[in-house]
Every structure is written in C-alpha cells, then in structure tokens.
Amino acid sequence: MDQTHTRALEALQPFVHLANSNSATSPRFIANIVTNATSSPHTYVFAELLETPTIQALGSPDTPAEYHGYLKLLEIFAWGTWQEYQATPNLPKLSSEQTLKLRLLSLLTLSTTTKPLTYSALMTALSLPTTSDLESLVTTAIYASLITARLSPASDPPTVKVTAVAPLRDVQPQSLPKMITLLTEWETRCGDVVSDLEAEIARVKNNAAKRRVKEQEYQTLLEEAVKQRAENAGNSGAGSGRGGKKGVFGRLGAAAAAAGTGRNKREFSADDVDEDDGFWDINTDGMDIDEGAGSSSRAAGSRHSKRILGKKS
C-alpha cells in the first residue's frame, strides 16, 4: 500500500511542474491541468497540486466564472466523494476516466467509514445501477492495490469485506485542527502511560533491592547458626569422649575386681542362655560340668546349680 502512495505522488509531479511553470498563465491552461491530472489512471493524491498558486488563483474573483468550478472539482478529487460532487452545482462535467477515478476514491472513503459495507449501500453512494457494475468497480480497486477486499454476494445481505485500504486520500485543511487536538490528547495519554510504567519499574526495582538485603541478612544468620551449632557439637563430643573413656576404664576395673574373687568355675543355668541351643534345661540330679581340672577343690563348701544335658525331642 505504501508503494501505491509513492507511485501516486510520482504520477502527480508532471502536473505540479506544469502548474508552476511560466506557461501557466491563462485560466484555460490551468483548467486543462486539473482535467488531465484527475483523468490520469495513476494519480490518486492531489494536495500538492492544490497548494500551487496558479491552481488557487482559479478561485479569484478576477478569474472567469466558467473556471471557478475546477478548483472545487480538484478539492473533491482530493478528499471528497461522488455524492459530494453530485450535490455541488456548477461543476465541470466528468469524463468516463474522471467518473471511474472519483468512484474509486469514494470507495476508499466508504471502506473506512461505512460498516458493514453492503452492496446496497455502495450502489446508492456510488450511483451504480447493477450489482455487476459494483463488483466490476471493486475488482478494479483490488487489482489497482487500492484496497484488499473480498466479495461476498451469497451472504445476507451481500457485502464487500475490506481488510486494508491504501492511504491515498488527502486530508482536508479544515480537519487539521481536530486532528492536531486528537494527536495531542493521544500524546498526553501515552505520556501518562509511560510515567505509570516508569513508576512501576522503580517500585519493582526497590522491592527487589529490599528482598536482596533480606536474603543477605538471612544467609548471614544461617551461616552463623550453622557455625555455632558446629562449635557446640564439637565441644559436647569432646566432653562425651572423656566421659566415655572413664566409663570404659571403670568397667574394666570392675571386671578385674570380680576376677580376684577366686571364682573360676563357670555355672550354667536356664537364665544364662537367651537363645535356644537345642537342649532341655532340667533342674534334676545329673552331671556337673566344670570349667577345668582342680575345680572341685575350689568349689568345696559351695553348691551350684547343675545342668543335665539332654536332647530335645
């Protein structure tokens, strides 16, 4: 679409040069420039031609009345519509090329202002008698890259679905103040949004810095706690180690003292055995089991429990 606008500007330049040339002195010559510019198949923008002094001179009281309408005609081609042309009296009659061009330009405007773009609305606005004429015009606009659209004659109602419009309509000077106001308001809203975003970014950064400080403090406290616990564990381990040695030596001393009692005979009883050894324990008269030779002399005067060996059934 931007290339279409560039081509339209390039196509207008020869007419702008003619309007600025020294030969553009008579109203008839200037009127012919307007006719040729609006009839050319590649010209769709006319604001630069309208701004030339010679074209503006057509509206002067000194210009013959028969040429006054060419200035208004060029304005309609720049930003007007087919309906405006029909509603304005004393305008030059259009050729077939000019008629097609003005209808195409009007279709661009209708595509951006009328929703939905029905067949009936377009036929009324463009003074087209049949649907085939409308479809032919829309097809011409599509192949000329003026619009991107799709015909839907079977829909209810039949419509033209336009998805893109080339920027080929000039801006009417009277609409500039309104556009400036709208753009200024939009700029103010954008500034407010940017300010809100900057404030939100600053808040997020501040919160992130606070979280980092808290994390560092927590990490420091955690390291100190781990270090302190390790030190406490080391101290308690050393104390328990000394106590453990003392307890071991005490138990060894007690064992040595018990060994000095002269008891060298080993006695067996049912309470001394925790696990099943496969034999019955019977507290009846039976065989004595001594640990070794000479045990009978050391065991004189003492009676011990006897264990009778017998296999379990």
Rank of each mutant, 00 (worst) to 15 (best):
A87S: 12
T88H: 06
P89W: 09
L91E: 00
L91I: 00
L100I: 13
K101E: 00
R103D: 00
R103A: 01
T109L: 15
L110V: 02
S111C: 01
L117G: 07
L117S: 08
Y119F: 06
S120M: 08
S120A: 14
S120Y: 09
M123A: 10
A125M: 02
S127G: 11
S127W: 07
T131K: 11
D133H: 13
L134C: 01
S136T: 15
L137F: 02
L137Q: 05
V138S: 12
T139M: 01
T148V: 03
A149C: 04
S152D: 13
P153I: 04
T163E: 14
T163G: 12
A164E: 14
R169S: 02
Q172H: 14
Q172D: 14
Q174Y: 11
S175I: 13
S175P: 06
L176E: 15
L176N: 11
L176A: 13
T181C: 07
L183F: 11
T184R: 15
E185M: 10
W186M: 11
W186R: 15
E187P: 01
E187S: 04
D192M: 04
V193R: 13
V193D: 11
S195T: 12
S195P: 10
E198R: 14
A199S: 11
I201K: 14
I201M: 14
A202M: 06
R203F: 09
K205N: 07
